[in-house]
C-alpha cells in the first residue's frame, strides 16, 4: 500500500478493464515520472471526454458531432448497413477496409438473464432507417458467440417482414469469441464470404 493519493491513483487504474494491480501500479508510477505537459494533456482529455463525445443520432457510433464521420461521408455506400453490437466493432471492421457501407450499433446483444431484451437495444431505430427502402442489404455482424447469434436470429426473423436482403458474416470467425479479436484478414474474409439468411 502507498500513501494517500498515490494509492488512490493505483486503485482508479485498477478499476479499468483488463488492468490488474501490477499494471495499475506501473501506470501510476509512469505518470508520476512523466513530464508535466503530457500529464496535463491526459487529464484535460479525461476531463472533456464525457462532454465532448456523443453517440451518432443515426447509427449509434461514437461521434464528436450529432452524427458520426461515417454517416456524414457521402462516398459510403448508402444501400448497405452492417449491424454490430458495439462501437469498437465498427473500428475492427473499418480496419479490414473490406466494407464501404454504413453501420448500425445496437448497444449490446440480447441477454434476457442480464435483463436485456430487444427493446433495450437500438432495434427500433434500425427499423426506422430501413423504412424508406434505400437499404437493400443488412449484414448481421454481431459477435460469433451465443448472445450474438441469438441477436442475429431475432433480427433476421424481424427483417423478413421487410424487402431487404439479410446476410450473416461467414464462418471462420472465432466461435465463442469477440468480434474485436478477429484479425483483419479473417474478418475481411468473413465479409467477402457472407451468407444470405433472409
Amino acid at each position: 500500500m502507498y500513501e494517500g493519493i498515490v494509492q488512490e491513483l493505483i486503485d482508479e487504474f485498477g478499476r479499468l478493464p483488463g488492468i490488474g494491480p501490477k499494471s495499475a501500479q506501473r501506470i501510476a508510477f509512469h505518470i508520476l515520472q512523466t513530464e508535466s505537459v503530457d500529464v496535463a494533456r491526459l487529464s484535460e482529455i479525461l476531463g472533456q471526454i464525457r462532454t465532448r463525445v456523443h453517440f451518432c443520432e443515426i447509427c449509434g457510433n461514437v461521434a464528436e458531432q450529432e452524427t458520426c464521420s461515417i454517416c456524414r461521408d457521402p462516398r459510403r455506400n448508402q444501400t448497405l448497413i452492417c449491424v454490430v453490437e458495439e462501437a469498437k466493432d465498427v473500428v475492427a471492421i473499418e480496419r479490414t477496409r473490406e466494407f464501404r457501407g454504413l453501420y448500425h450499433v445496437l448497444g449490446g446483444a440480447i441477454s434476457p438473464i442480464d435483463g436485456i431484451g430487444p427493446d433495450d437495444l437500438r432495434i427500433r431505430q434500425l427499423m426506422q432507417r430501413l423504412a424508406d427502402g434505400t437499404v437493400v442489404e443488412v449484414i448481421l455482424a454481431t459477435d460469433p458467440n451465443l448472445e450474438g447469434e441469438a441477436t442475429a436470429t431475432y433480427l433476421s426473423r424481424l427483417l423478413t417482414t421487410l424487402k431487404v436482403k439479410v446476410t450473416r458474416l461467414a464462418s471462420g470467425l472465432p466461435v465463442g469469441g469477440d468480434l474485436e479479436y478477429a484479425d483483419e484478414i479473417t474478418l475481411g474474409r468473413a465479409f467477402e464470404g457472407r451468407t444470405v439468411i433472409g
Binding site: 458467440n145 451465443l146 465463442g176 469469441g177
Partner: peptide, 13 residues
C-alpha cells in the same frame, strides 16, 4: 476463451 483460436471454441457457451 474470447480470443481467436482459443482451444475452448464454443465448448464453454
Amino acid at each position: 476463451v474470447r480470443k481467436v483460436g482459443s482451444k475452448f471454441g464454443a465448448r464453454l457457451e
